[in-house]
Design a binder for these strands. Sequence first.
DNA 1: TTGAAAGCGCTAACAC
DNA 2: GTGTTAGCGCTTTCAA
Lengths: 346, 346
Amino acid sequence: MAKKVKLSDIAASLGVSKTLVSLVINNKADAHGISKQTQQKVREKVLEMNFQPNVLARGFRTGVTKTIGLIVSDISNLFYSRIARRIEDYAWNQGYSVVICSTEENIEKEEAQIRLLRNRKVDGLIISSSMQDASYFNQLFDAGVPHVLIDRTFPGMKSANVSVDNFGGARLAARHLLSQGFRKIATIGITPEHISTINERIGGFQSELDKQGITIPDEWIIKAPFNNIEEAVKENLNSLHHAGILPDAIFTLNNNLTSLCLKYLGKLSVSVPSQVALVGFDDVLYFDFTRPSVSAVEQPVDLISKRAFDLLLKQIQGTPVPPGEWSVMLPVDLIVRESSVRFMKN
Amino acid sequence: MAKKVKLSDIAASLGVSKTLVSLVINNKADAHGISKQTQQKVREKVLEMNFQPNVLARGFRTGVTKTIGLIVSDISNLFYSRIARRIEDYAWNQGYSVVICSTEENIEKEEAQIRLLRNRKVDGLIISSSMQDASYFNQLFDAGVPHVLIDRTFPGMKSANVSVDNFGGARLAARHLLSQGFRKIATIGITPEHISTINERIGGFQSELDKQGITIPDEWIIKAPFNNIEEAVKENLNSLHHAGILPDAIFTLNNNLTSLCLKYLGKLSVSVPSQVALVGFDDVLYFDFTRPSVSAVEQPVDLISKRAFDLLLKQIQGTPVPPGEWSVMLPVDLIVRESSVRFMKN
DNA sequence: TTGAAAGCGCTAACAC
DNA sequence: GTGTTAGCGCTTTCAA
């Protein structure tokens, strides 16, 4: 490996002090009244010798690493990978790198990841957490660690957070299904039980059904364990089908469940929507051209990412955040496609 | 922020030297003949005081950061996000963190990202590069920077690399299309022109057509610019359709193009496969339940990730790599579904 | 079996 | 306007 040129090399070859060089490359020269001429000299030498500051050494010295951590349950889920892409983009524009971590819904792993990231001195954290409650993050908050919770949130949390209106979105889905005349409706979510988004979606959905005096029977409140989700969806659908107790409509609580549901309904030759209608929470590109196309509640991925990064940056920079912006809830829209429209032939 | 306990705190509170503590926490105590008793004492104190070594300081001192960089064109593309997930998993098991970077097919950005990552002293790099040729990476190789090129490769490269048999996979697709009786065939790729995977796929495809004396006319060799891909696919399809010169079959060169092609063929009410058949390179989950289901060449994502990480780890650790394993080409399979089967009603 | 001390490359008080 | 110096927290010779 070619010998790395360091700050002191520049200083030595110019016969000036390291301080001077440091001030120039950090754009603090003017503030310290370094002459334009000297600055120019330094800049030329930096280019000439192709000096690349050791970011690690700088981070060690200043405590600022220009790195943030992004923690989600699964980076290969389209919802999170799109968020990762946007956050990475905002981060890059501000000179930040992003470290990704997939928790697989494993709380111990998530804690271990946060611990590691803190020991790596990342400047901040953006987290879609798999934890049970706010306590861990309230500690983080009290410790002054800049972070923002996205997607999933907790009652009583002190942390900055940006989420979507899961309750309202689910109500939209329910109202739509009801308006199409569906009454026998099932929901499919995931375990662990405590995931806020899932519960808010079920809650919002149920609340609309309640108005019509409709209750979802227990066997139609399906939960697929995160690490065995495909098998679970498949088997639940199979057994309902064989028992002859398929619902008229299904509300699936994330994009993955929606896909899986469509897939296995297809394998069972159950026609959607004529036999069973389908609406999902979280829209993805391809719901537009599946068979049938799938109705889904669309989440504002770009906005989530933007607000989350902004909120984090403000904490890192110590910019005060107006109280009203500390906890952000973004609206969602329902996109109606074929899968949930009654009496349509596909 | 609560005062971080540091190594010297442990040493002081035990009345021993920092050296001792350092040796113990790095499992080098036995090799240095530190008494079991002392080791035990140190370990207890570490737990008691909840000492978390400052990874940054350690990295600064040793030059080992236990971090790798993953550079791809777009982390939200399912192909790359699945790879990211697997690599992150292997990395985590070995104590490594991974920093992601999306280049957006921008060469300057890619170079800037690599430069930044090197200044951050990452231990190694896994890259699906957007560059034109091997020169940059040969320099990296000569500089002794551990790295492995994945997906896209270059003639004359010295770097370790793992790719798939793009040529062979495309031949599979071509043979299949020919066997179904299709003769008027178009391909849709992306620009920039130099992307190896795209060219190998076109090459393999063309080579099979050549055997039948079939040449793809220029207007059917479509290239969509990366940053305007959706619009380009849409307009190309539109104009072919309006000019009445749609082909019998289309071979799309990545999963995104396949999806887009299916989408806009649908919008034009062009029936797939009865009017135009479709085969794509790179399979994704949902091709199984689109309308129609889509035939595609499946890439071994997990294996790519595994081999890439192994290759990187060996370089980092200085483990010699057998010559035959330095450059890996993995086989691919064609999955035939409805979109490319002739005379099938959908 | 253990400790002292140097130093990784950089920044920031504080001098001059 | 510019330089001196100390030190961030850790690992690692080298000495005892």
